[in-house]
Each structure stands twice: as structure tokens, then as C-alpha cells.
């Protein structure tokens, strides 16, 4: 390789490295642009398969349905436990997603300067999708319910049975007291400190007994596609 060529390569590598460290937002834009092409192709295929129906509006309707179910469960069963005051929210765009295996995180466009703090809830159409794990001045990293490390106290259905929401590729509601009347279609909603109470998370799909036989567990269904979310609302209690 000639000296001049080498100098060009070194300059190009330095430029990319400086951008990656000091101006990563340009990289996020390129990712969004590349991802948009990929998602647009998939959406077109889905729309064609669904007779032209909009996948996005279907997700919004499903999320709204979950919200209403959660509201109903809270009102019917645990209204007396509702805290005073209303939660506040900050709208944030999703810049990027964790690109590798094993984790599920979103980088969103609101950070410490916008009042976001670690532990805040991230919601999509009123459904809790995760909690803020790390805060930067103008961005925040949200750990979603599809991350292995996600754990949260929650409640199920009109009777408000306590459960532990355990994240992962297929999140589950664990440690439900044995004999609880939990059935498919019951709503799972938030009951953790720092997060607005009664926020819908998922719907019970099926129940079974834990491997040790001491508790019940439930597999969960979600009203949205985490890979298609483009904005969230960050909320705190």
C-alpha cells in the first residue's frame, strides 16, 4: 500500500472514530435510515398479507384495549389503593435499539436535561414497555420488558394477585400464589415503586405451575411489536 493511500485510510478511520465517540447521533441517523428501509419492506409485506390493513393502527388499537382492561381491573379491584396525583410524561423518540443478542434496550431522545431519571417508566400508547436504566444529558437508555435483566413487581387481573414480572425474549409473570384465579385474558399491570400504579403491561396467555411446584406462572402476550416502536412517553409517579 502506498504512503498516500495509507494516509487517506488513517484519516478516514480517525474521522469515523471521532464521530462514533463525539457525535454518535449521526450514526443513529444512518441506522434509522438503514432500518427504515428494512422495516418498510416488512410492513409492505404485512400490509399485503392483511389485505392492506395498517399494522401500526392495529397495534395502537390493541394497546388501547390493554389500557382499558387495566383501567377496568384497577377500578374494579384496587381503586382504594390508587395513589394521589397524576403522573407526568415526556415524549421521546426512539433513536436506536440494542444491536446485539441477549439484551433489549432502546435509546430515547430525552435525558437528564428533560427531567428523565433512572427508574422512570417508558410507555407506548399507555402500555409500559420498560424502565429507564441509564440517563445521559439528552438521551436515556430504556431496558425493555424483553430484556433478561428486567424484573418488576406487578399485579394480575381484577383480584390484583401479586406477581413478579420476569423479562426475556418471552416475558413471564412468576411467583403468583398457588390457587389464584388467574385466567387467559387477565391484564398484568404495574405495582412497583417509582412507576405509576396500574399501568398495563401485558395480557395473560396461559398459566401453569412453576418448576418447584410452589407457585403459579403465566406466559404473556403483548399488544405491540417492540421492534416497530418509534416513540415512547417517559413517565414517573
Amino acid at each position: 500500500m502506498r504512503k498516500r493511500e495509507r494516509q487517506v485510510f488513517i484519516a478516514a478511520a480517525l474521522a469515523f472514530l471521532l464521530l462514533a465517540v463525539f457525535e454518535p447521533s449521526y450514526g443513529w441517523r444512518i441506522r434509522q435510515w438503514l432500518s427504515a428501509g428494512a422495516v418498510a419492506d416488512q410492513d409492505a409485506a404485512r400490509a399485503a398479507g392483511a389485505g392492506g390493513a395498517s399494522a401500526a393502527s392495529a397495534a395502537a388499537l390493541a394497546a388501547e384495549n390493554e389500557s382499558l382492561k387495566a383501567e377496568l381491573a384497577v377500578l374494579q379491584g384496587v381503586a382504594a389503593e390508587l395513589p394521589q396525583g397524576s403522573p407526568s410524561g415526556t415524549l421521546a423518540l426512539v433513536y436506536s435499539q440494542y444491536p446485539f443478542n441477549f439484551k433489549s434496550e432502546l435509546l430515547v431522545s430525552a435525558g437528564a436535561d428533560e427531567g428523565v431519571a433512572a427508574g422512570d417508566a417508558a410507555t407506548f400508547h399507555g402500555v409500559l414497555v420498560g424502565t429507564v436504566r441509564r440517563v445521559f444529558p439528552h438521551e436515556a437508555l430504556v431496558m425493555t420488558v424483553f430484556d433478561d435483566g428486567f424484573r418488576m413487581a406487578a399485579r394480575i387481573g381484577k383480584s390484583g394477585y401479586d406477581t413478579l414480572l420476569s423479562g426475556g425474549a418471552s416475558p413471564r409473570a412468576e411467583s403468583i400464589v398457588k390457587g389464584a384465579a388467574v385466567a387467559p385474558g387477565d391484564i398484568v399491570y404495574s405495582a412497583a415503586p417509582g412507576i405509576p400504579y396500574g399501568m398495563p403491561i401485558a395480557i395473560v396467555q396461559a398459566t401453569d405451575t412453576s418448576p418447584d411446584g410452589l407457585f403459579e406462572e403465566a406466559s404473556l402476550g403483548f399488544a405491540y411489536d417492540i421492534n416497530a416502536i418509534r416513540s415512547v412517553v417517559i413517565m414517573r409517579e
Binding site: 454518535p24 449521526y26 450514526g27 443513529w28 441506522r31 435509546l107
Partner: peptide, 8 residues
């Protein structure tokens, strides 16, 4: 690395 980096 510039394109794949997901956080600041």
C-alpha cells in the same frame, strides 16, 4: 462501530 453504536 460508528453505525452500530447505540448509545452516547
Amino acid at each position: 462501530a460508528f453505525i452500530i453504536n447505540w448509545q452516547p
